[in-house]
């Protein structure tokens, strides 16, 4: 049993459109997962359900064997998971250091340095940082929360190729060296290729794809 488990999760928009029909998945700590699929297939919805931002129409999401509805979604968001967004979503009136300290259970500066920010950069206005630097702050904020699971929605979507590679490496490092369960929703094949496992969401179902298959063409039903 993994740290996070999805059991027959369904999600319907306005009681009409079945975006997720019956999703099953098992996520383990120390691995990086990439969820791929066409636009509008429900990838971000699935990530929101895993992060406790919304409740599924049916089925269960378990964290460490416990239903997150029973844990409480706010408590689950606070203690078990951390988010990294495509548009970084840093709070603009706080410095990088303060953004990380927002929910930090750990000292922010060493974490910021670990993701590649200098001490000076850590005290600057976040809006004066480059996109790559802002995403590093977002990753540091996720790591500082000490959550076991990090949910990343298109973390390299707004970045140039070189910076995207750097960020991908950081995410991979976080999963492998810090024993985090990294679940990434992405359109990027390059990022997906770096994942330990690729999962494809199609027609409301999640399928495991061979991680070595960069085009995610070789599918295996979960």
């Amino acid at each position: 049993m993994g740290i996070m488990e999805i059991k027959g999760v369904r999600y319907t928009y306005d009681n009409k459109r079945n975006i997720l029909k019956s999703v099953h998945a098992d996520f383990e700590a120390g691995n990086m997962y990439a969820i791929v699929g066409p636009s509008g297939c429900g990838k971000t919805t699935l990530l929101s359900l895993l992060g406790g931002l919304d409740s599924p129409t049916g089925g269960q999401i378990l964290f460490d064997g416990q239903d997150i509805e029973k844990i409480g979604l706010a408590a689950h968001r606070k203690n078990d998971v951390a988010f990294i967004f495509q548009s970084y979503n840093l709070i603009d009136y706080l410095t990088p250091q303060e953004n990380v300290a927002l929910t930090s259970k750990l000292p922010p500066l060493p974490i910021l340095e670990r993701v590649g920010l200098t001490k000076e950069e850590a005290k600057r206005n976040v809006l004066k940082l480059s996109g790559g630097q802002q995403q590093r702050v977002a990753i540091a904020r996720a790591l500082a929360s000490d959550a076991s699971v990090i949910l990343a929605d298109e973390p390299t979507g707004n970045l140039d190729e070189d910076t995207a590679i750097e960020i991908t490496n950081i995410l991979k490092e976080c999963a492998h060296q810090m024993n985090k369960c990294m679940i990434i929703v992405t359109h990027s094949n390059e990022l997906a290729k770096q994942a330990d496992m690729i999962l494809k969401l199609r027609k409301g179902e999640l399928q495991i794809v061979d991680a070595s298959d960069s085009n995610a063409g070789k599918e295996q039903k979960n």
Partner: peptide
């Protein structure tokens, strides 16, 4: 935006 971020962070 800020409220959403803070909620996502568990506040």
């Amino acid at each position: 935006h800020e409220s959403g971020v803070q909620l996502a962070l568990g506040i």
